[in-house]
Design a protein around this nucleic acid. Sequence first.
DNA 1: CTGAAAGCGCTTACAG
DNA 2: CTGAAAGCGCTTACAG
Lengths: 327, 327
Amino acid sequence: MKRATIYSIAQELDISASTVSRAFSKPELVKESVRERILATAQRLGYEPNRAARGLATGRTGLIGLLIPDITNPFFPPLVRAIEQAAAGAGAEVLLVDSGASGSNEPGLIGRIKAQVDGLIVASPRMATAGLKRAVAGVPTVVVNRAVQGLPTVVCDNSGALREAAEHLYSRGHRKVVLLRGPGAAWAAGRRAQAVRRWAEGRDVELVELGPLEAQFEDGRAAVGELVGSGATAIFAFDDLMACGVIAGLSEHSLRVPADCSVVGCDDVLLARTVTPSLSTVTAPVEELGGRAVEMLSRVVAGETVKDEVVTGTLTLRGTTGDAPRS
Amino acid sequence: MKRATIYSIAQELDISASTVSRAFSKPELVKESVRERILATAQRLGYEPNRAARGLATGRTGLIGLLIPDITNPFFPPLVRAIEQAAAGAGAEVLLVDSGASGSNEPGLIGRIKAQVDGLIVASPRMATAGLKRAVAGVPTVVVNRAVQGLPTVVCDNSGALREAAEHLYSRGHRKVVLLRGPGAAWAAGRRAQAVRRWAEGRDVELVELGPLEAQFEDGRAAVGELVGSGATAIFAFDDLMACGVIAGLSEHSLRVPADCSVVGCDDVLLARTVTPSLSTVTAPVEELGGRAVEMLSRVVAGETVKDEVVTGTLTLRGTTGDAPRS
DNA sequence: CTGAAAGCGCTTACAG
DNA sequence: CTGAAAGCGCTTACAG
């Protein structure tokens, strides 16, 4: 048996297909009694509007494309969920594309989906700006966690929380601090490094920078080798994954956290709660980030002009920060 | 400027739209010289076939719907990626729907997307069988990691690896073992429990079962309280997340892993490598799981009959398993 | 190998 | 409030 259409319903009820169509797309234009009969037989026939047909007629697909670099990085799943749920609230579905962290083929991936979405949310921090702008030309696009001239943007600002963390460590006696930088091409990596660097300037603090490094557990762990014996008593890692690597590395060198060395991460992903001791970090309001992105995208799709938005991370002190060891 | 269509290209080249259409959908039917000219001007005009129009004409959307219970559970991101990449290889895109672990609204979510996908991959272990079958009626569907009568299925069998793990612990002197069961409604939870239980039968092993429990870090941690002083020397957790909770809980009770207690997880998610000590667990071939699901779905969509498939997990011994403590 | 034409299932001005 | 009709941009038998 074929799928029901507006025509089969119209025929059944001896009315026009236009009216059936309106009963779904503009219900207020249809007399209530008629609408009820339409809805009832639609229900009975298991009718669902054909999205392709609707899309062809309206030019809208009801789909949002979401490009992320690596769903396997624990920062992204909550973001994906937030975006997906916000989209559902707006009656849209999410087309997920994971670029496998290789910024180079992202323009191609965008090309693959741009013709079938109403808009794009791009959360790929490392893709080259020029390529990004070229790739999204003609599609309503919102960029997440990255500033791109000329494209609407919603970013999370962690500078304040990072400074707060630094201040906290300072008050606990830390005077030599390591900064593990994230990937050179990642916008957020630059911002976070800058925040710590600026804080250290003009204070009696020695800041040792390492990196840029890949934002991976192993890179964090490996970095510890270079730090042991440096006299540093606290480490800022680019993100939580690296921070967990650092914790593992410290433990391999028989250094206790936080007794011998404090560690601060960034993002507050699931891992931050599951390491022992649990990680002091900057909590990103991921739900808000995703929600704003979707909302902003709806505006852009509707042709409104939007202005960039900023959400702010907050400091969450847990078990990896403590007094500097006496030397 | 409006988007290019097959008509604008046809006009430009003074040929028929049919030919332009064929150049994209059945290139071998078009003379090479003509095809080249078409492709060239398509390129120049930035033409992309309108998916909605193609979908309306062919009845195919090129979309696969993927239903998962919780993208935030570390088991799923690698699965999602595997499915997405396999789909890309097959020229399909993935519509991701996360039910937020609430099995109850999953039929609704399926209803929301079933009209716009060519097929469905359902990886929701807890949804009621009857509701699931009703919800997917009429859409080609493949079920992952769960057996459902009458629906094609690809599951991961961890029984062998779990028995192997148990055997290993036995050889290291463990004679009292705890089994932390997963969610009662989850198919995999039943299977895993059964594997351990069957192994223990007829051996001089005392098996203590706890649960069903939610598959969460906190549940694992909380469970430790009930185990301390029980005399058990090894713990099988339903999955890695629970296992990590158990490790944290043991540490809070000043018990060393594996010196005082061994721990075995299941799945081998990212967390398993980032805990200290790293987790002994059963590695699920997630990529294969996802790849097979997509492949099977293509077959089902094509109307072929398929038979259920099974991939098998393998034991990965790391740092949380060792000799039973001498008592 | 190519073209003319019908059809996929909607939406939406337009007329009533 | 409702209907007839055109149109969205493709695909695909059919004829040549």
